[in-house]
Design a protein around this nucleic acid. Structure first.
Length: 398
DNA sequence: AAAGCGGGGAG
DNA sequence: CTCCCAGCTTT
């Protein structure tokens, strides 16, 4: 925690007396009001690491069921380290930002290899784990190991900027560093983890971005932003670049009651090593059906007939506005259809026995139930749900 | 429908 | 520093 002091907020630094009042009131409020969350019932550092990885960019309500299932499946660092990446992705599927899962998996392996299976207890060591930055290192150090370290996430940054009436943008590196310094000064040595969580809880439940409930705030009398009369002016926010429209076409290809799903490459880009219905970006002016047919033939070696445009999925991620048109397709039967059927049956028996993904596998004819158990990104999960809803109807064709 | 939020890593 | 990852809530 040794850092050069940045002069950014020196004038904003609260006095010792203010600090004491703040920590005391905040902790008292937290003891009274804190939510009963699964990861607050444990002191297991691994469980806290998992919860913090999931909570990045994701809200508590969405995390809870994933956390429970993940901890049941991987109850220890060793069990996570021993797992296949595809299994880890599968447990994460639907939570989004899948790099977090890959990093957490890599972190578990590093903890087993280099730290004897024990989550390192020092801020600097935590920082060396994949997927662990200053925020997560501070959160785990303070919550799991009672170390006085700042954990400045979006909630905490907003709370501090309002308390001290700092009209700065916390995403600017120097501003963020200044906020960490202030946070460090506020943390009481007795309960660092609870204090950090109290700041986050306040940001999540009272000092919210658009409609803060100032009258219910335990530290309102110390809040400089409230004194100005315009708490919403703090912190300053940056303008976001306009979002970009992306057109995609996607093929739901049926054959003998199964659908073709493909696994994306593992080297770069989004949704690495995850499964999807064959999908490709549609360049402006190109014919969707032809694009799809060519794409599937070239990448999967499967000849298809495009039957009908069937659904439209709208998916917004960060600055991309994706419109995905889903086409129902039929695989053209090959001449050796009989032999193929037999192969398919053999494949089915094998997969029913064990559901694991072969690391080499890049495509599969799978039933909807099988697909449900593969790691799928959010848009393809929605397509799967739509196909399942229509299952009875399409069943007529098989 | 649009805007807002937002950690960590790579380069 | 800037850009990328690939998703939810709030308004």
């Amino acid at each position: 925690m040794v850092r050069q002091e940045t002069p950014v907020f020196r004038s904003a630094m609260p006095t010792t007396r203010q600090v004491r009042a703040l920590t005391w009131r905040l902790l008292e409020w937290y003891d009274e009001e804190k939510r009963d969350l699964p990861w607050r019932r444990t002191s297991n550092p691994y469980a806290i690491l998992v919860s913090e990885a999931m909570l990045q960019q994701t809200q508590v309500a969405a995390v809870i069921p994933y956390y429970e299932a993940f901890m049941k499946r991987f109850p220890s660092v060793e069990s996570l380290a021993a797992a296949r990446e595809s299994e880890v992705l599968r447990m994460w599927a639907g939570l989004g930002y899948y790099n977090r899962a890959r990093h957490l998996h890599a972190a578990a392996r590093k903890i087993v290899d280099e730290y004897d299976g024990l989550v390192p207890a020092r801020f600097a060591d935590l920082l060396f784990l994949p997927g662990v930055g200053r925020y997560m290192a501070g959160a785990v150090a303070s919550i799991a190991f009672s170390i006085v370290a700042p954990a400045v996430d979006g909630n905490v940054a907003r709370v501090l900027c309002r308390l001290l009436a700092l009209a700065e943008n916390p995403s600017v590196a120097r501003v963020h560093a200044g906020l960490e310094e202030i946070a460090l000064r506020l943390i009481p040595s007795e309960r660092p983890g609870d204090f950090n969580q109290a700041l986050m809880e306040l940001g999540a439940r009272v000092c919210t971005p658009a409609r803060p409930e100032c009258p219910a705030c335990p530290v309102r009398t110390l809040c400089k932003a409230l004194k100005t009369g315009n708490p919403l002016d703090y912190p300053a926010t940056a303008k976001r670049p306009a979002s970009e429209s992306v057109e995609e076409v996607c093929a739901a290809i049926r054959r003998d009651g199964r659908y073709l799903v493909v696994r994306r490459a593992g080297d770069s880009g989004r949704y690495r090593k995850m499964w999807e219905f064959p999908s490709v970006e549609l360049e402006p002016g190109r014919d969707p059906q032809r694009t799809l047919r060519d794409y599937v033939r070239e990448t999967c070696g499967v000849a298809i007939r495009v039957d009908e445009e069937w659904a439209e999925i709208k998916h917004q991620v960060t600055k991309h506005k994706i419109r995905k048109r889903v086409f129902l397709c039929t695989a053209q039967k090959k001449k050796d259809e009989g032999g193929r059927m037999k192969d398919e049956r053999r494949g089915k028996r094998r997969k029913d026995m064990q559901d694991a993904v072969n690391e080499e596998e890049t495509r599969r004819w799978a039933t909807l139930d099988e697909i449900r158990r593969l790691p799928l990104g959010a848009p393809h999960k929605r397509i799967l749900d739509l196909l399942s809803e229509s299952g009875d109807f399409f069943g007529m064709d098989f």
